[in-house]
Structure formats: structure tokens, C-alpha cells
Amino acid sequence: MFRRSGERSGRVPAAVQHSRTATRSSIPNPASAGGKRSDQPGICDPLTPQAQAWIAELSQALRPYVDGAYVNVPNIGMQDWETAYWGSNFSRLRRIKAHYDPHNVFQYDQSIPPASR
């Protein structure tokens, strides 16, 4: 399933095996956290800090097996997200963004900003 470059083994790393167990056992049921979750994800949600800690731990465990990050699930706490998401394409993507969206209408915390002209 996971391989380092040149490895033939299809074994799942122990850290990932642990994470499968952690998803079921370490993140509590929303009902046990006051019975109601917020209508706005991440805002006043008692599960958010625990979920973010779990994501950070799993990301560290997977680091030897992956190169980059999954852009469709932004991680606000990620350092150097530009390189993790876009690699060497970031500068080129900024120029494209400047051409098609110069006023940065389509944006969020980790979206590609338009290049300065």
C-alpha cells in the first residue's frame, strides 16, 4: 500500500496501522462533548483541537512515505504549504492566477495569491 522509493514491500507502516485504531478510539463521540456540534465547522467545536492534533500526528508519521500534501483538505497549521501543495509549480500558478483572477475573488487562507505585475 505505502512504499518508499525503491521499496517492494506492500506493508502498511505501523504508524498508519495505529492511526486506523486511533480514529475509532481516540476521537470522542460528538454526543459526549455536550450533545451538539456547532453549525459552523471548526467554530466552537469541541472536537476541532483533538482532530487537528490527530491530523498533525498522522502527517508526521506519514512523512517518510509521502512527498507533498493533499491540497483538497487544507491544513491551516501547515508550514510551507505553498511547496507542499504545489511544489515547483507555485510561481507559475501565481502568474496564471494573476491573469484569470487578478482581484483574488476566488480565495481562502491557503489559496494561490495572484502574482504582482
Rank of each mutant, 00 (worst) to 15 (best):
L47E: 01
Y65S: 04
R37A: 04
I27V: 15
A51C: 11
S116N: 14
L58V: 12
Q40S: 09
R117W: 02
S26V: 09
G87I: 09
D67N: 14
Q60R: 15
Y108D: 06
T21H: 11
D39G: 05
R92G: 10
R20C: 01
Q60W: 01
P64L: 04
W86D: 07
S19Y: 10
I55S: 12
Y70L: 07
V16A: 13
Q60A: 11
G77C: 03
S26Q: 12
A56M: 05
V105S: 07
S32G: 04
F106Y: 14
I55Y: 12
L62D: 07
Q60D: 06
I76H: 11
R11Y: 03
Q79K: 15
A84E: 13
P13L: 02
A61C: 02
L58K: 07
P113S: 08
S19M: 05
I76C: 03
G35A: 03
Y108R: 09
R117Y: 06
G68C: 07
S5I: 12
S19V: 00
H103A: 14
T83M: 02
S38A: 05
A98I: 07
A53I: 05
G68E: 09
Y108G: 06
H99M: 06
S32Y: 01
S91C: 01
F106Q: 08
P113L: 05
I96C: 03
S111R: 09
A61Y: 02
N104A: 14
Q79N: 12
Y70T: 09
L62R: 11
I43C: 05
A51W: 06
R117D: 08
P46L: 04
A84Q: 15
Y85P: 02
N75T: 11
D80A: 12
I55Q: 13
K97V: 06
E7R: 02
R92D: 00
S25H: 12
G77P: 02
R20G: 06
W81P: 03
A31W: 06
H18D: 11
V73M: 12
P41W: 05
T21S: 03
I55R: 15
E7Q: 12
Q17S: 09
S116R: 15
S88E: 10
R92M: 01
P114C: 05
H18C: 00
T48V: 03
S91K: 14
Q50H: 09
L47S: 05
W81N: 04
V73Q: 13
N29Y: 07
G87W: 10
E7S: 13
Y70C: 07
A22D: 08
D39R: 10
Q17P: 00
V66L: 11
I55V: 10
T21V: 04
Q110A: 00
I55L: 10
P49C: 03
I96D: 02
Y85N: 06
